[in-house]
Nucleic acid binder design. Structure first.
Lengths: 250, 250
DNA sequence: GCACGTGTTCCCGTTCAACGGGAGATTCAC
DNA sequence: GTGAATCTCCCGTTGAACGGGAACACGTGC
């Protein structure tokens, strides 16, 4: 008998196992992992043990498994996002303290908006985004900014793939999105009223790196009917300051 | 011809590659990686490509390689350290704003002190520690706290391994460390004058989780001759507040 | 132009380490 | 007790990983 390989390259395996950990389920038994990753129990045990030895997974007192600190340690060596987050933090705090609403920083990651940091509103309302969470590009203000100032082939790719509809207000027609993007480029910021939740409006501005390229989006989430001009000004000011602190002049 | 396996389990391989990325070298060519991980060039290319496909590594414009955001994303699913960092942050900010020196949070990781977060002194002096950096347990104030309140077999393991001497003041004799640990337990905090750098003193207190177990060390770095009582009081207050915010009563 | 160094891609025969079925140990719950 | 769930260990099979090597693609210096 023996093995009937499933066609994955060893590394996939590994990623599949890590992927069984979700933000809501951070500890699980080995057998559970095996079930979710569709691996035979004995195989799951073998690989998990390897990963534990390597420090990428850890076991708690009950021998259940969770993601290891080693992984976090390694991930901090990804300089660019870390530098960005570091540079943005003080200015995000300023925005948050003045606008008093959720303040978020997102980057482009595999055709989605990935949220690097989020400072919650003191009067904490909606909670759609979270640190390390993702949102589709066409449906969030941050995503629209990243898309509008991104490469043309990214736009093609996103527009031609299915544009999921999150609320009644979400733009799901490629033409509508395309003219929205033109508007974003012209205004210099994106306003997404009710695209994600009926009750709130996202507002995002582009953040530039030391060469002037748009690398991130800084955003706040306001109640749907709130006055947005003050937030826009604050966001732009913060984005400029972040760019400056990254070394971008003028 | 063919292969002479080096005896590693596939996963090791993988970790060896990730380990070639250091805080100072965050992008490199595939061949470079191969050299450092002591892998034949063709093998390095194969594995790196797998990792890139899996999203754990990324290529920049010049096809050079860096650590991927995917890894960071996965690492955020490691709940416990994240929760701790989250809970500690506001109180660390308070300590930092009142003591006005480097303020740090460290946990025990593979017999070393791993620094989860660091708020730098406005009058930024020494810079030995950094986020995701490590220090030996016997030579840092944070380490001494983690060691003193840790499991007995941890203490044995550390004391019987080589106690590296970082400065003239570093305790390198097992007996000296042992009585230092007794002192730490008795005082409830650790003072490490000049153990790491001649010119500075580390001061650390234990942080407890919701069950009362010591899970982290909160520390500040003062100039060697500075008055430390105020800092100690502030640290203890912050540690208590952190424990309370994690759910620990009394 | 040519020679050289460096980084990368592709090919392919060898071989050994990963594979997973299965049996048995262990623990917990009812 | 019975039964379910989880984990450990063993072991024969085999296919996928391995890496040497050749060729390609740059760039650079002369």
């Amino acid at each position: 008998m023996a093995n009937s390989p499933t066609g994955d390259s060893g590394t996939d395996r590994f990623v599949r196992i890590l992927d069984t950990f979700t933000p809501t389920r951070t500890v699980q038994t080995v057998t559970e992992i095996g079930r979710r990753a569709e691996l035979p129990s004995s195989t799951a045990h073998r690989i998990v043990n390897e990963l534990v030895n390597a420090g990428l997974l850890e076991r708690d007192e009950d021998r259940r498994v969770r993601i290891g600190m080693r992984l976090w340690e390694l991930s901090t060596r990804s300089s660019h996002a870390l530098r960005l987050r570091q540079a943005a933090m003080p200015f995000m705090e300023r925005v948050q303290s003045r606008v008093r609403e959720h303040t978020q920083l997102a980057i482009l990651e595999q055709d989605e908006a990935l949220f690097l940091e989020r400072l919650s509103s003191p009067a904490s309302g909606s909670n759609v985004t979270r640190v390390a969470g993702r949102l589709p590009l066409h449906a969030s203000s941050s995503g629209l900014v990243l898309l509008a100032f991104g490469l043309p082939d990214l736009q093609e790719r996103v527009l031609s793939s299915g544009l999921t509809q999150l609320t009644r207000a979400t733009l799901s027609d490629p033409h509508a999105v395309r003219s929205k993007l033109a508007e974003v480029r012209q205004l210099g910021h994106a306003i997404a009223p009710g695209y994600i939740e009926e009750v709130s409006t996202g507002i995002a501005v582009p953040v530039r790196d030391e060469t002037g390229r748009v690398i991130a989006a800084l955003s706040v989430v306001l109640p749907r009917d709130a006055e947005s001009d003050f937030a826009i000004v604050e966001l732009h000011r913060a984005a400029t300051d972040i760019a400056r602190s990254l070394g971008f002049r003028s």
